[in-house]
Nucleic acid binder design. Structure first.
Lengths: 159, 159
DNA sequence: ACCTGAACACCGTTCAAGT
DNA sequence: ACCTGAACACCGTTCAAGT
């Protein structure tokens, strides 16, 4: 709070005009974070859209490692959070999942991607090169795509 | 610090005899957390071992929601952390992955499971029933097993 | 409407001093 | 060796008071 106020050239107490408390300020920060990467246009293939979303999330984590871990901590029911989630769910729907399955897949996929990005931001993989982490991320992306394609194929053949 | 000291019936300053600082105390807590679930015996099938590990992690998160999120934040190079990781890597080796691939798969799988458990502990899925979260977790487990089996099959047929 | 001063109840940490 | 008292530099937050 004091650091933020100093940066704005105000006293600490002036902040409480614009923000209810510290948690409210942090909520505002994660909301801002979710607008820091582009949402893929809906006419791209669904694989492409999910990949762009995941890369955007990872980039945002790299640019804002301090705030990012908060994303995994709160329900994120703000407008920008909803926009990101709807984009992912739409892509999963186009992958052939029914709405309920798409919602579940979105929760699981976002957890995997957010978890990876948060781990990286917090330095959990700090003893690995950036090249290793890039390969890890690529492997994660490949695995998730494979999984969705296998699931879709199972559905198509009715097995 | 003060709360811990009060619970021990000591003054706050007495803690600094046994612990370097607050971060050190928290490191000790996550170390303890990693001993709170059983490591599966190595004679079980690898699918079984990974499943037991994942369930153990989720239970630990449910029992200690306050400390758990810290697991995703630090490198975890302590002895208990290594034991858990080695158990997972051994199972992945038995699934047919070479050592490098097993290490990578361990990083990705642990991130997915830890991310899910941390999300649950922190209340990110608080607006969903426990039944929904159980189904989510079951879906995650099924997906990860499927993924490993597909990968193993690909390797066996040399494609 | 927006900002400030003064104050409150808390933090983690250090260090000289005690037994 | 282990613990304590006193002190320091910090937190977030409130509220009456200023413009």
């Amino acid at each position: 709070m004091q650091a933020v106020a100093r940066r704005l050239g105000l006293t600490t107490m002036a902040l409480y005009r614009h923000v209810a408390d510290k948690a409210d300020l942090l909520d505002g920060l994660v909301e801002l974070l979710l607008t820091q990467f582009p949402l893929p246009p809906p006419d791209l293939p669904w694989q492409e859209r999910l990949a762009q979303l995941a890369h955007g999330v990872r980039d945002a984590a790299a640019r804002h490692p301090g705030v990012f871990p908060l994303l995994l901590q709160r329900p994120a029911e703000t407008e920008p959070a909803r926009r990101v989630r709807d984009t992912a769910q739409a892509a999963l729907g186009d992958a052939g999942l029914d709405p309920e399955a798409a919602a579940r897949a979105e929760r699981l996929l976002s957890t995997a991607v957010l978890g990876f990005a948060a781990s990286e931001a917090a330095g959990r993989f700090a003893h690995h090169d950036h090249a290793v982490r890039d390969a890890d991320f690529a492997c994660l992306m490949r695995s998730l795509r494979l999984l969705l394609e296998v699931t879709a194929a199972d559905r198509d053949t009715g097995s």
